[in-house]
Design a protein around this nucleic acid. Sequence first.
DNA 1: TCGCTAAGTTACAGACCGGTAACACTCCCG
DNA 2: CGGGAGTGTTACCGGTCTGTAACTTAGCGA
Lengths: 193, 193
Amino acid sequence: MEKVAAQCLGPRDRIVGTARSLFHKLGIRGVGVDKIAEEAGTNKMTLYRHFDSKDGLIIECLRSVAAEGRKFCNDIEAAHPGDALAQLNDWIAFAAGHLESDCRGCDLTNASVELADTDHPAHRVIEEFKAEHRAWLKKICEGLGVADPEMLANTLTTLLEGARVARQSDKRGGPKTDFTAMASAVVASYARK
Amino acid sequence: MEKVAAQCLGPRDRIVGTARSLFHKLGIRGVGVDKIAEEAGTNKMTLYRHFDSKDGLIIECLRSVAAEGRKFCNDIEAAHPGDALAQLNDWIAFAAGHLESDCRGCDLTNASVELADTDHPAHRVIEEFKAEHRAWLKKICEGLGVADPEMLANTLTTLLEGARVARQSDKRGGPKTDFTAMASAVVASYARK
DNA sequence: TCGCTAAGTTACAGACCGGTAACACTCCCG
DNA sequence: CGGGAGTGTTACCGGTCTGTAACTTAGCGA
């Protein structure tokens, strides 16, 4: 069959890419390793030669998602060196773009909901990235010179988290376009203080 | 065994109560009908006499959660008739209380994440309640006389949605206590306009 | 006491899942 | 040309899941 990803990548990368896509669409518990392997143009044995278990594949996928998130942050920072306001606006625009193009939310957040067991190693990866991202946004907010940069950063991340998860249970056009307005209003209110 | 709910209720109510509790703790896909029946002090056959399928039980549980949410709204409204600000403060306090006492978030939101298939009938129940709740909060915000009551209501619901889902991937003390501060700041900034 | 209904019990079917064993193949490097 | 690592293929194991069948028991009203 070799559905889509018949790219010139090794089996391992194809498996991670396919798994990420399927986990995103169907949920982690909604797809089996057999389907992942087949969709990646390989088979289950090869999958288990690269990953010790499904859980191992899951955390590899989440790490990959986190790495992408870090890259976005770095790109934003590199695009407007020293200009905190431009960086924040880019962050808002990037988030809004995500909301527009995709209605299944954040893979890390979804995983934390699906993997209810707190002891699951995936939670470490998720918590680490979320904390890192909050700290990064806080640093940017500090560059704005507002009164309470930490609370502004927390408000913005919470707002984004809510918008992304709400998009899955909100069938009006709402959250995607609303986010920019809500976030901008929050930023403006903090800047005014 | 008859774990906990050996109350004087019919099997049906015990099943719904137990299912809600287990779905909440372990996730919908993380618990089987057999475990639900056993924990409810009955058995699988009786469960299937009252519900046509696990999906049927799921939507019954979600309806029950939604009904509880409506009751909270009604209680808030009844406690401060005509006083929109007091109602809003109650809503914030109630939400903060929820964040403090529970770290597994909103059952409806979690279900919308777990049941990735958009055609699943549960999504109808979830979307309906979320829309209703947004409209209810919007009505209250209109009573405040602020400039843009709808955007304030959307900001607050999105903030709560984010705080509840973030609580599952945020192991610092954060979201619970932060929510009151963030929400109050948002309300204040809208009132000031 | 009779008889009906709701509930409990046991067993099972069929599907899917994660994970493994054994073996055949291909392709690249020396 | 030879050999070994990486990959593909098939079959299987044990467990769990939803859902059903057939039968027994308990309670309650007439």
